[in-house]
């Protein structure tokens, strides 16, 4: 993994005494999509704000593509684009002017052709002369993305990018994120929506109460921490689980018609095939079987509750 952002022992305590981040360390790979999950107040926005230079860290360091984000802030920040959580836009500017302003702030000379293409990609070209206050919430969200991309960053932070947007726009955003990743942009997004992380992220990190509980490949995380369950429907009700099946930790439903088996697919001795064979040996007749796998949402809830 080639690291593009390296965060070491980052902590932040606000003047009020609230500790928003507690010794967070994290490496972000070049070209990946990393989703940071966490409930409200978990520290996601504080983490992003420190990396981008909006908030001072209490301790710790952030290195962006080899540049310290404090001592070498110009080089570090030039690589980063940020889409904030709130719809923070001036009311009286036009779409075109606000994108031109953002590009200039990042020290890039005017490039009308690039901005035109960007606005077309965001379906905003026909709104380029409109005042920002006349745009809908979804359009404002796209303008914010346009501003963040106006200086062609290598790393894009999206803080709750689809909060409060409709399903269609959410899918458009996911498509945009995938296109950006294909063009080589590293994307870090925070979200409340587990399905968002499940849909587009390569890796997932879970933050809770200022601590990074886990960061891993999305599929590996689901594999490692996720549970698989087999629900077996019996032809006839049984009074109790036969003693020969006691080693399998089965659960009997209240109607005495279903057996539930929670298992680890990496353990072949306790695999489904062996269980089905043991059930047959015990003389039970099967009517139906159904398997299920816990979602990222289940994993997230388990992690957060375990920490609480």
């Amino acid at each position: 993994m080639q690291t593009i952002v390296s965060i070491s022992n980052l902590s932040k305590t606000y003047a009020t005494g609230f500790r928003a981040l507690n010794d967070v360390s994290l490496d972000i790979a070049r070209g990946e999509i990393l989703a940071l999950l966490g409930p409200n107040g978990a520290g996601k926005t504080t983490l992003i704000s420190i990396i981008c230079g909006i908030v001072n860290a209490s301790s710790g360091t952030v290195i962006v593509d080899g540049h310290n984000n404090v001592s070498d802030y110009r080089a570090a920040r030039a690589l980063i684009g940020l889409v904030p959580q709130e719809l923070t836009l001036g009311a009286f500017d036009t779409v075109w002017n606000t994108l031109s302003f953002s590009r200039g702030l990042f020290g890039k000379k005017p490039n009308p052709a690039y901005l035109e293409q960007l606005l077309k990609d965001l379906s905003l070209w026909d709104k380029k002369d409109n005042l920002l206050m006349t745009l809908s919430g979804g359009m404002k969200r796209r303008v914010l993305i346009g501003k963040a991309l106006s200086h062609q960053p290598s790393i894009l932070f999206l803080d709750e990018p689809t909060a409060g947007v409709d399903v269609e726009l959410r899918k458009d955003m996911w498509a945009l994120v995938r296109r950006l990743r294909e063009s080589g942009v590293t994307i870090i997004l925070t979200t409340h929506y587990i399905e968002e992380a499940e849909e587009i992220a390569d890796r997932v990190g879970v933050i809770h109460k200022g601590e990074l509980l886990v960061v891993d490949d999305k599929l590996a995380l689901m594999h490692k921490l996720g549970k698989r369950q087999l629900v077996i429907e019996l032809e006839q009700a049984v009074d109790s689980i036969p003693a020969t099946l006691s080693a399998w930790s089965l659960e009997l439903s209240t109607d005495h018609m279903h057996l539930t088996y929670t298992y680890d697919p990496r353990n072949p001795e306790k695999g489904v095939a062996n269980l089905l064979s043991a059930i047959s040996d015990a003389g039970l007749l099967l009517k139906d079987v159904e398997t299920s796998q816990s979602s990222l949402e289940d994993i997230f809830i388990d992690l957060v509750h375990a920490k609480s």
Binding site: I80, A91, F106
Partner: peptide, 15 residues
């Protein structure tokens, strides 16, 4: 910009 929140752009820019 502080009032509207757009100051984030100034603070995150290489300036």
């Amino acid at each position: 910009p502080k009032f509207t929140g757009t100051i984030y752009e100034l603070l995150s820019a290489p300036i």
